[in-house]
Amino acid sequence: MLTALLYGIATALPLAVGAAIGLHWQLPRAVLAGLMAFGAGTMIAAASSELFDPAFHQAGAAIAGIALFAGAGVYVICNHLIANRLGPAAIGWALMLGTVLDGIPENTALGVSLTTGGGLVLVVAIAVGNVPEAVSGAALMRQAHGFSPVRALSLWITTATVLVAVTVAGYALSDTIPPTGISAVQAFAGGATIAVLADSLMPEAYREGGWWVGLCTAAGFMLAFVLG
Rank of each mutant, 00 (worst) to 15 (best):
L2M: 10
A4I: 07
Y7C: 05
A10W: 03
A12G: 00
A19Y: 01
L23V: 08
H24W: 13
L27G: 10
A33N: 02
G34A: 01
F38E: 08
G41C: 04
G41L: 04
M43A: 08
A45E: 11
S48L: 13
F52T: 06
A55Y: 05
F56N: 12
H57M: 10
H57G: 11
Q58P: 05
A59G: 09
A59L: 09
G60I: 13
G60N: 07
A61K: 08
G65T: 11
F69V: 14
A70M: 15
V76R: 03
L81H: 07
L81Q: 14
R85T: 08
L86P: 00
I91T: 14
I91N: 07
M96L: 15
T99P: 09
D102H: 14
G103D: 14
E106T: 13
A109F: 07
S113Y: 07
T115Q: 14
T116I: 13
V121H: 06
V123Y: 04
V123N: 04
A127L: 09
G129C: 10
E133R: 02
V135L: 07
S136W: 03
L140Q: 09
H145T: 04
H145C: 03
G146T: 02
G146K: 02
F147P: 06
S148L: 10
V150L: 09
V150C: 02
R151G: 01
A152Y: 03
S154L: 13
S154G: 14
S154A: 15
T159N: 08
A160N: 00
T161C: 11
A165W: 00
V166H: 03
A169G: 01
Y171H: 15
A172E: 10
L173C: 12
S174W: 03
P178H: 12
P179R: 04
T180E: 14
G181S: 10
G181Q: 11
I182V: 14
S183N: 02
A184R: 11
A187G: 11
A187Y: 09
F188P: 07
A189Q: 09
A192R: 08
S200N: 06
S200I: 05
E204I: 01
E204K: 07
A205R: 00
A205I: 00
A205L: 01
G209Y: 02
G214A: 06
G214V: 09
C216P: 00
A218L: 15
F221W: 11
F225A: 14
L227E: 03
L227Y: 01
G228D: 13
